[in-house]
Design a protein around this nucleic acid. Structure first.
Lengths: 217, 217
DNA sequence: ATAGAAATAGGGGATTTCCCCAATGGCATC
DNA sequence: GATGCCATTGGGGAAATCCCCTATTTCTAT
């Protein structure tokens, strides 16, 4: 039975390379590629892959939020996070969002394949470097709580927060999410109220700290 | 005559993917992979590749420095920068270091191959997105120098920029600097125009990169 | 079953920001 | 010393955002 994979990464050459390499593996098929989280969510709906290889840093809708949405709609789909960083908040966010695996991008290709086969057979898979972080968090649940203090926002709010911090206007966000401008405004003010912020620059910094957006345009 | 390539990128899966994909191209051979700039420099010495595909962000010795050293020792080797970011300072740094090409990681694989063949035949190759930046710098050689230190802004503008990025409203800035609100607004729009930004979040990120403000409030 | 939270959307009015244009004063080059 | 560049200071009007409300639906938890 072939394992059907969806690739989600914002870098075309990375996707192409992964696809080429994965397709040489027996029993693995790459169904499609998504260049952001939103595309990934809708592709999962249409294609019903077995596994999603999900980069965390993506424009529009990041990997964590995308994972959360996918797991809500399709609990059987296995998401493997593929990140450059092993920071606690990324790992924690992804695992809470329901990811079955977490790999660093500097893992070997063999390890990636192992991870894919592991999650398909119902197991979880963590990069060795990640395992330590996870154990650490399991041992110190106090830190875990603190980590979450920053996560009082609802999924929708975080989604809007990311778009704001990426520089999109209220109108553009409304169009993209198919909402009325009013709703977007409401989310914006909720975010600012909840986080006790006073300006868009502060909101932007928060989003950067939370890894919802980067310093690059 | 086969084109002999060295891959330099700190992410193993990315290297593996690129290698697999490139090796399917006729006339292209991947000699080796380097996981940081220092390894790349020594591998160039030993293997004498025709082309180095060089990521900019690498531990130990970054792509720009590695490129500089390679060009000093082996002027005939062609280096193609492969970066996630199109920020002016990266582009400028790489081109000054002697890179023959600059690609963004979200370029297509076809474009990557085109770039490889172009530099081998003595031409330069720039991603479309990069070309604009380079032309811009070529046209304004005055700005070019200042761009490196990011000092195209007047002192007053930098002052205002910092205050904006710290989250102060136009009115608050006007009060603090004893100006009319209009003047502050004008400075803001000048800043945004000069830096070719499109939003306050982007302006905030620029200020952070420039060290004008921190991520902590 | 009911209470609460999340997501959706709107009204109205104050405030802020955006974009084109104008006046002053300094400082250099010619 | 005239010319011109440009930093700094402003204005007016259009657009967007912010802030005070209310309201419906859905989902979850008690």
């Amino acid at each position: 039975m072939t394992i059907r994979i969806l690739l989600a990464d914002d870098h075309q050459v990375v996707r192409h390379g992964l696809r080429t390499a994965l397709q040489r593996e027996p029993g693995i098929e790459v169904l499609a590629e998504a260049e952001n989280g939103r595309a990934a969510v809708s592709m999962v709906r249409n294609l019903q892959p077995d596994v999603v290889l999900m980069d965390i840093h993506m424009p529009d809708l990041n990997g964590t939020e995308a994972c959360r949405q996918i797991m809500t709609e399709h609990p059987k789909v296995k998401v493997i996070a593929l990140s450059m960083y092993s920071q606690k908040r990324y790992v924690l966010g992804m695992l809470e969002a329901g990811a079955a695996g977490f790999l660093l991008k500097n893992c070997s290709f063999d390890e990636l394949v192992r991870a894919v086969r592991a999650v398909v057979s119902g197991k979880s898979y963590l990069s060795a470097d990640i395992a330590g972080t996870v154990i650490d968090m399991a041992i110190n649940p106090i830190k875990r709580l603190e980590e979450k203090t920053a996560a009082i926002l609802t999924p929708r709010e975080r989604e809007v927060l990311q778009l704001i911090a990426e520089g999109h206007s209220g109108k553009a966000i409304a169009d993209q999410l198919a909402l009325s401008g009013r709703t977007v405004e409401h989310h914006r003010s909720q975010i600012i109220k909840k986080l006790n912020l006073k300006s868009i620059p502060q909101l932007t910094k928060f989003a950067i700290i939370e890894g919802l957006t980067g310093l690059d345009d």
